[in-house]
Amino acid sequence: MIRAVLLRLSHMALVLLGIVFLSFVMMDFAPGDFLSQMAMNPQISPRVIAALKEQYGLGLPFFTQFLHWMWALLHGDLGYSFSYHVPVSDLIGQRVPMTLLLTVSAVLVAWGAALPLAVYGARRKGGLVDRSLLSFSYLSISVPSFFLALLGLLLAEKTGWFPIGGARSALSAQATTGDRFFDLLHHLVLPALTLALGSFGVLYRLMRSSVLEILAQPFMTAARGRGLLERIIFWRYLFRNAVNPLVTLFGMELGGLLSGAAFTEMIFGWPGMGRLMLHAVMTRDLYLVMGGVLMGAILLLLGNLLSDLMLYLLDPRVREGA
């Protein structure tokens, strides 16, 4: 077991190395750099540009730049953002909590709604609830997140129930802590709901088919025949087996926590990682891009690892097989 995890971790390190190399190559291939925008400004003399280029190390050959960056990374230094003039780790440290607040609450809502509803729907398969939820999940899978977010914005504007965009009201700086908290919550509801709606469909369909499969198993009939308590049948036989395929999905959701909400963040003006990254790519803020990609990729790989571990703990068949 421990050997398997160590092997996976070493694979992960290799994949990560590949990712950072690929991203670095991509940024290098792109024409121009952060300074080319400045260089077009006639008010900035070429000497300043050259000095900055020297200072940022942008004139160095590709491999030297890459090795410098890797060396700093090994010392826990993600570099310096050109456009924000602060260390990349500070920027990411500010934005990550906001993104996590949004995505984690969305995941909680989606899972909290989809799992019970799917069990209910599967038990009354073909009923009115099941059929309407199935069509709803079809729609939920098919609506792109940016369109859903636009519709959400329209709803907020038409009804006035929710604030339009942003994460804080203008006056919230003077408000009490409690008021600030509720203000943030009020801003959170709509983006979190649109995100949750988007992932509801996949969850519902997967959990429903999984429950249906388990319900048809002979061991369920046997458990009923032995007269086990309904509660025990449900939790120990049905739920525990049915949730198995969702564990893999959980790992994927975990991986998408940082990068999956990018469109929603941009449209609702939520100050998270997605907006930061779009800005960074557009302005060619090299180290900021690298830091963001690295964080996203690490989380994705960790999610996969965690879901495999959970599967190992939950499912004796996987344990025996390993």
């Binding site: 991203s23 990068s259 990018a262 790519v281 990609v293 996203g296």
Partner: peptide, 10 residues
Amino acid sequence: AVPALYLLMG
């Protein structure tokens, strides 16, 4: 493993 949107933007 690279988030798709970042990869696309890059």
